[in-house]
């Protein structure tokens, strides 16, 4: 049995949005510590790795490790039915073939006063053997106009079932690496640079020197260069640009993939770029205290 409730269900919505253009099918791997996803795009040029730690959920139970294979487009369609303020609960049986997703509106506390009534109202609808104690919590949200004697029933809980599939995904072992360059910058600014650079060409060079980080593109139209300098003392944390460099690094990448990565921009104010010579770049979006989504992209290399 796996069951995990995320008060901020928006994170899940945004996560699936952030990977569904890159990967079609993937496994959600559930363990005691976390839920994680690792998947590559079809051409094996980029990889996305998601981790949400169990401590970031307000309820988390995973009796044994499970791999839940899902179609990202279909999950995205279902998650679109959840409101941005909804809490989302994921549930799966150990040997089941579906993932249950429950969306609850933000005013669930209102039901507490009306438990007795609700149990009665549920009546014979309760499936045989079901735990009535839970039924009223599951199906309705109640509000009342006290003194007037009117009970308003608000249907504020939605339950969807997503069909799961067996996915034989190729997992890659990613070694712990000490990168020569680590750049932290506002995620919105990174998104803007990638978007603007795509107008000019399809290959981006990222060069980090003591001067700063230079993003450059050359195309038929012309060339574009953006220099980002360290700004470690900006008033707001999220406006800071911090550059740690052991040695200068310059790499080139396909803008098409970097553009896919920026779909994660809404997940947090900050993006972290890790680079070393001749290895994939890591583009990481931290998700509060809950986890992260990391993208790996193989560079283009002269032979």
């Amino acid at each position: 049995m796996f069951e995990a409730r995320l008060t901020s269900g928006k994170i899940l919505k945004q996560l699936i949005e952030a990977l569904k253009d890159l990967v079609q099918e993937a496994n959600i791997d559930c363990s005691d510590d976390e839920i994680s996803i690792q998947a590559m795009d079809n051409s094996h040029v980029s990889l996305v790795a998601v981790s949400l730690r169990s401590g970031g959920f307000d309820h988390f139970r995973c009796d044994r490790p499970l791999s839940l294979g899902f179609n990202a487009t279909n999950m995205g369609k279902i998650l679109k039915c959840a409101g941005n303020e909804d809490a989302i609960t994921l549930k799966a049986e150990d040997d089941g073939d579906s993932l249950s997703m429950v969306f609850e509106g933000p005013n669930q506390d209102r039901i507490a006063d009306f438990g007795e009534f609700a149990r009665g109202a549920r009546g014979s609808d309760s499936p045989p053997g079901s735990r009535r104690e839970k039924c009223w919590k599951i199906d309705f949200n109640f509000a009342t106009m006290r003194g007037v004697g009117v009970l308003v029933v608000i249907f504020d809980r939605k339950i969807y079932e997503l069909k799961l599939m067996d996915i034989d995904s190729e997992q890659l072992g990613i070694p712990d690496t000490d990168y020569k360059v680590t750049i932290q910058m506002p995620s919105g600014e990174f998104q803007r640079i990638i978007r603007d650079m795509q107008v000019l060409g399809d290959t981006l060079s990222i060069s980090c020197t003591k001067e700063g980080v230079k993003f450059g593109v050359q195309g038929d139209l012309g060339t574009g260069n953006v220099l980002i300098r360290q700004n470690a003392h900006a008033e707001k944390d999220e406006d800071r640009v911090m550059i740690e460099m052991e040695e200068p690094v310059e790499l080139t990448f396909a803008l098409r993939y970097l553009n896919f990565f920026t779909k994660a921009t809404n997940l947090g104010p900050t993006v972290i770029l890790n680079m070393s010579p001749d290895v994939p770049i890591v583009v990481e979006y931290p998700i509060g205290e809950t986890g992260h989504i990391k993208y790996y992209l193989a560079p283009k290399i002269d032979e």
């Binding site: 094996h44 997992q171 072992g173 790996y296 560079p299």
Partner: peptide, 14 residues
């Protein structure tokens, strides 16, 4: 601008 590498050039399958 160089040849696009894939990830298998850098990471091993588990």
């Amino acid at each position: 601008v160089g040849k696009q590498k894939n990830l298998f050039s850098f990471f091993s399958k588990q």
